[in-house]
Amino acid sequence: MNGFLELFAEYDIIGAFWMNIRLTILAAIGSFALGTVLAVFRISPVGSLRAIGTSYVNVVRNTPLTIIMVLGVLAVWGQLKITFSSDFELNFFVYAVIALSIYHAAFVCEAIRSGVNTVPQGQAEAARAIGLSFLPAARVVVLPQALRGAITPLGNTLIALTKNTTVAAAASVAEASGLMKTMIEFNPNLMVSIFLTIAIGFCIIVIPMGLLTTWLSDKLAVAR
């Protein structure tokens, strides 16, 4: 048990989790922005934009995140030589955020689209019937209902994103899963307690997110 407590002094466990949280927050913003744009593409009347949105979702959704992460560093940094910072630590952090954003944007897009799907046709027709043109109809009638309908899938995507920040280990980012690997490598006799520490850490972050999602979607559900 003593050895176990020493681990907390020796390794920066909190710092590693803080890295996962920072990755989550930034990638959540990134993927939400990109995903919203893609969702607008997918429901727009312009054929080519719809095609871009659809192919993006189909390609990204079917690619393992590990490959996106590895290829991002290997191809974009290694070959296209796009560097965000001369400080490697910051540079690969940015890469991890971008890879996570690209991957989860496909799911955000689908979540928003499914939210739009929950809005009955009659709502839009009614909006037009009372003389609202496209933009006001979308802003006042359709989108508010769509976003409320999309809370559950959006929340699930955020939870998935939180857990997927561990894959940033593949991009040379020092986060919790990588730290756990190092800790077990050097302290194999404490394997189980190290694992439980990290696992419970994730439970503490992830389970409240799930509860919040359920609560929000119940509270904001559109009664029909």
Partner: peptide, 18 residues
């Protein structure tokens, strides 16, 4: 420092100048 999964990756970066 950058750490990668294998030396092959490192050599690719060395060649490209990264």
């Amino acid at each position: 420092l950058v750490e990668q999964g294998g030396y092959a990756e490192c050599v690719t970066y060395l060649e490209s100048g990264q």
